[in-house]
Design a binder for these strands. Sequence first.
DNA 1: ATTAAATGTGTAATCGGTTACATGGTGTGA
DNA 2: TCACACCATGTAACCGATTACACATTTAAT
Lengths: 329, 329
Amino acid sequence: MATIKDVAKQAGVSVATVSRVLNDNGYVHEDTRKLVIEAIQQLSYKPNEVARSLFKKKSRLIGLLLPDIRNPFFPELARGIEDEIQEQGYQLIIGNIDEKYPKEMDYIQTFEQNNVTGIITATNLTGRSHYDDLSSPVVFLDRTFNDHPSVFVDGIEGGRMAASELVKRGSKRITILKGPAQLQTAQDRFNGAIAELRSANVDFSVIETSSFSFSDAEIWAEELFEKYPDTDGILASNDVVAAAVMHEALRLGKAIPEDLQLIGFDDIPLSRLLFPPLSTIRQPAYDMGKEAAKLLIRLINKETHFEKNIQMPVMFIERQTTRKVEENG
Amino acid sequence: MATIKDVAKQAGVSVATVSRVLNDNGYVHEDTRKLVIEAIQQLSYKPNEVARSLFKKKSRLIGLLLPDIRNPFFPELARGIEDEIQEQGYQLIIGNIDEKYPKEMDYIQTFEQNNVTGIITATNLTGRSHYDDLSSPVVFLDRTFNDHPSVFVDGIEGGRMAASELVKRGSKRITILKGPAQLQTAQDRFNGAIAELRSANVDFSVIETSSFSFSDAEIWAEELFEKYPDTDGILASNDVVAAAVMHEALRLGKAIPEDLQLIGFDDIPLSRLLFPPLSTIRQPAYDMGKEAAKLLIRLINKETHFEKNIQMPVMFIERQTTRKVEENG
DNA sequence: ATTAAATGTGTAATCGGTTACATGGTGTGA
DNA sequence: TCACACCATGTAACCGATTACACATTTAAT
């Protein structure tokens, strides 16, 4: 790999001049600039980002922490972030926590040690505060944490909406899968849902779950139908769990949506492809990623006067695990 | 952030001694070591990986290139890699190509500029050779490229196996979804399948596809049933495509597996959760990731005498989109 | 014509580590 | 007692960039 010295020698100038050309900084004579650019091309020189980062104490890297890359919701977030930051010349490092939260600390440390310019995290457990004394800006995505910058949806409203749609379509004995207790977002959905059900005076039961993972979801699904075989409406904590529940329901011979209605949460790509296609509360994951990235870049650039807590809309996506509202309205 | 100098001052020694403690190198008196370790803890000092990497020309980062993180097969690979390399103290940087292959070059450059210690790639298009003059070792995963180190499955055998299972279970008019032409793996599956069908003297048609993405998959699915409405057996290029096909088939009221059998490829986590659960040819993604990581680490450590091209087994996973073999045997 | 401001370029310090080399003390065998 | 290996530690060069500062040369303003 050619270094800046090689380029300087080749162009017959000093390294400072090469650096000026590279960074479009200070004064460089047009003729000199041409010489340098030619030398750069001849040697196909690429600046060493490590050296650059050492001096500047900033890299072009942005760190992203995800709870579980196997849950399709999170890659979708990542894609939004990626598209946004690449336009600005940044690069994404993804750290997968795998729902093992001690890993979170390790990744944060690695990010810091590698001078990341900013961090976007979708992993913070409620009540933890190891993000407080970081030198780089942090954006919380799909999470909120004190008054830190964040991009999120209104989970309470989402839960309420799901419950309301289910009730509107005639479910009488609803079962809620309550997501992991440590996750504020999951609790918000849950609280929104039960508030709605109580005010509508509808009977409901609750199944507690402790993760969003594919492999665990099947267990909750089985438990659900053992405990509440006559449930006629289910609010799943997310689409992955909903897929597992639907699978189990069909296996047991239940008719969806006639005997049993089901609403998920997230609207991951596969939800459309399930059969019947899953009705769900959509979180605009890709756009949330984009917004988080924009927010982070503003923080990095030390801009002022912009909204630091961005709430994105949830939306009921009516597919075929819920009945038509006219039928029962 | 405390630096090595701060630690040295605190402990009353030189930076060289601190470095020796840090790296467990050279001679350090036991008493001195204790002093240094104490200073490190007091200042909660973490070495700056950037500075380290600049001097050593090696970081603790390993780069991973994926064609599309939204396809659940790839996160699964990533998880396998991650688990393996983290034990060795490495960190994963994921670059998502999003099936936009010029991005591949950009990421490779970023990886090089950041001194990654090694690269694992699942993205290489056939015939490209921009991996030849890299300074870091490269492992091809789910791909092969000349005689470069690689971890892959026998796609030809996989295609053959899928076709054979379908025929064995009585499909007579088979349609094959042929994956992207540039992807050797997809072509291998295709070639294996048609070889098997020809030798079994079974009639088949082909639908050409150009990506593995969720959003495109639905289009191929529609096209398939328009062109070949009476097909009774489908070989999908992967599980995502299979999910889309199944969805469309059920929408059209076809009975699966009675009227139509379907076999996917990959065995992604969701395949089990589809209804009916998808029969598929399993690629052991997690283990492939692990093997690729092990292979890369061997290359990094310049070990010798180990297998550089690792072929992993494919396996037919019989679920419920195929009939029982006894019924038709 | 005189001087200040603007332009162009190079030298060297710096970022935070690692390590080659120098130096000095201690232990051991001849 | 001498020589030499071993131990312990420090000084300084180095990795490859950026940039403060110095200096020289133009250009513009008075």
